[in-house]
Computed example of a mutant assay.
Amino acid sequence: MANKNFYDILNVRKDASPDEIKRAFRNLAKQYHPDKNPAPDAKEKFAQLKEAHDVLSNPTKRHEYDEAKRRGYNYSSDDNTSMPNTEHFRDFFEHLFPGFADDFTRSGTHERFSENMRKSNSNSFRAREQSKEQNSSRNVEYDRTGFRFGPSKRKPDWTQNSSFCSSFDSDDEPNISTKRCRSEPSKNSNTTSSGSSLPKDAAIEKHLEVTLEDISTGNLRKLKIKRKIFDERGNYTVEEKLIEITIKPGWKAGTKVTFPGLGDKHPGREPADITFIIKDKQHALFSRDSDNNLLHTANVSLKKALLGVSYCIQGLNGKRHDINIRDIVHPGYIKRYTGEGLPLPKTPSKSGDLIVTFNIQFPSYLSWDQRRVLSDCLPN
């Protein structure tokens, strides 16, 4: 990340304290972590934030970075080597050796040095030498040119470390720390809505029977659920929770209501969601179809079907419907009352119809006299 200002990347001052740097990184990491931010440049931005944090949070690296920027060098955190910027190289040597710049340019050394610098930038190495001057010893870094760039301490090579990870806390689950490692991506895990990368079981589905009266007017259902909280040894405690489900007028059978994370809790796993699926409770008089029409079957005798039907039915809303039919009622005869059914889910102000279907009950036995009378009365 040569020529980039780590302080600007983290949006902190140059004299920012370690706590301010850490706090700035955590806030920006939450915003740009690829698991939480789908933007195409989020991954690159997060990598920049991580590199800036690694350098500025380490006192030694931060000192080397500040010194390199002050002298106009390019700083590379990949190998912790600060290389002089060839644009400032002449000024650097002119300060040390007056008259060097002219000879440097005439001899073509500038071009050869620039080429060597470009090559060494991709294949730099360190030489450590023990100095015994002034009865003290310290580690000194050199580059290929043999020029000393200041004291350093040996630091782990993070580019070779398989356990190099990034860590931050989730906004929705403050007690869960999310970790991602470069060489060890999470296995068998699904990213949850809270941003956690812990593995999670499939949702637990339960049927919830509701009455047609509830579907007609709406209702609030309160349910008590229990779940087990397991510890590392397999022991568990039982937790009870009261939940509420607001049943809206017109809800269709099959409607799902999900409560995230209310399943049993195991160490290292996200609790499963619990999903309630609406199911119609059997009614003594009515059922409904997919269009929220209220259906009723009226059983009438053969005599009434032939001579006339008087029938009374009371709807879910308490409204009474008197049915008087003087025509002959044949099997499958239907009487429809517009707008007397159940509310429509998308437009609760409108309702389906009440549909009454007649079922003719034929006698199971007729005497010979009855047959003779019917034979004389009924047409062929």
Rank of each mutant, 00 (worst) to 15 (best):
N5Q: 04
N5E: 08
R13P: 05
D19S: 10
E20Y: 05
E44L: 10
S57I: 01
N58L: 07
P59L: 06
K61P: 00
H63L: 11
R71V: 12
Y73I: 09
Y73M: 15
N74H: 15
Y75K: 02
S76A: 06
P84L: 15
H88A: 11
G108C: 10
T109F: 13
T109M: 14
H110P: 06
R126F: 09
Q134K: 13
R138S: 08
Y142A: 01
F147D: 07
R148A: 14
R154V: 15
S163P: 01
S166H: 03
S166F: 01
S167W: 07
I176T: 04
C181Q: 03
S186K: 05
S189Q: 03
S189Y: 06
T192F: 09
S193W: 12
L198S: 06
E213D: 13
T217H: 09
L220S: 15
K224S: 10
K228M: 05
E232D: 15
N235H: 05
I245W: 02
G254T: 01
K256S: 10
F259G: 13
G261E: 12
L262V: 04
G263D: 09
D264L: 08
H266M: 10
P271V: 02
A284P: 11
R288Q: 08
D289L: 01
N293S: 04
T297E: 05
G308L: 03
Q314S: 08
V329R: 00
V329Q: 02
K346G: 08
D353M: 02
F362N: 12
S364M: 07
Q370W: 04
R371P: 00
R372H: 10
P379S: 12
